[in-house]
Design a binder for these strands. Structure first.
Lengths: 124, 124
DNA sequence: CCGCATCCAAAAGGATACTG
DNA sequence: CAGTATCCTTTTGGATGCGG
């Protein structure tokens, strides 16, 4: 919420790094982009094709944010037409392990979650 | 996004369990509630006091979602005034490990991220 | 005490048109 | 090709009042 973030900014510290981080990669697209870049550096248009239902606007925005956080690098080749290549940085690489654990959990527990959901929905 | 979710619903499968899961715990409050419940089962009002800047509406909503997914249990004691106790289920417990890894990463890498951000902001 | 319903503001995100 | 700018819709969440 606003208040907490404002407090943090004023204090210059982070009351909850977990929240801060999950807020970054937990948004709609960051994770997908990172996982896509895991396959190797790629151009803007390649990413767009690889993630069909992302809008150009959101792809740009997401890449900027990841670049800002130092997770992704951006290399511009000013030719005509221009060419921009994105890649995962070392810092970004370090995310793969914890993300992998989360992903594995998601895959493993999905049946349980879906079952729980079904049961809950039938009772309500 | 809408289209993907609709497709998934029709197909009855999940094209991206990672997204689905992170969408759940990556929202504004779920993680905080889970971590708070880690300290032991608690009443609604206790949770509200423990997480001061959550609104009643959001706490209720978050708890419902977690209950629906089978991560949290809800026990009503119909006294006057009523009493409702929430606790983490076994399934919820299993989240602690991957969450812990993410949290550790967040804590470890936060300095790097903040440095990258600073540098980026100065250049733009 | 718990939580639902309503209303409203803010933020996120999609569609489209335009630029170097 | 790789964006930026604008407009508009959807989603999120806070505030408040009511009910069991």
């Amino acid at each position: 919420m606003k208040k907490r973030e404002e407090i943090e900014k004023k204090l210059g510290l982070n009351l909850c790094p977990i929240r801060t981080v999950l807020a970054q990669i937990g948004d709609k697209w960051s994770l997908l982009v990172i996982l896509q870049l895991r396959a190797g550096g790629q151009r803007f248009s390649q990413l767009q094709r690889a993630i069909p239902d992302i809008s150009q606007r959101m792809l740009t925005q997401t890449l900027r944010k990841l670049e800002r956080d130092g997770l992704v690098s951006r290399k511009v080749t000013p030719s005509t037409p221009p060419r921009v290549d994105y890649a995962i940085t070392a810092l970004g690489q370090s995310l793969f392990e914890p993300i992998g654990a989360m992903a594995q959990w998601a895959i493993d527990k999905q049946p349980d979650i879906l079952k729980a959901r079904d049961q809950f929905d039938r009772q309500h």
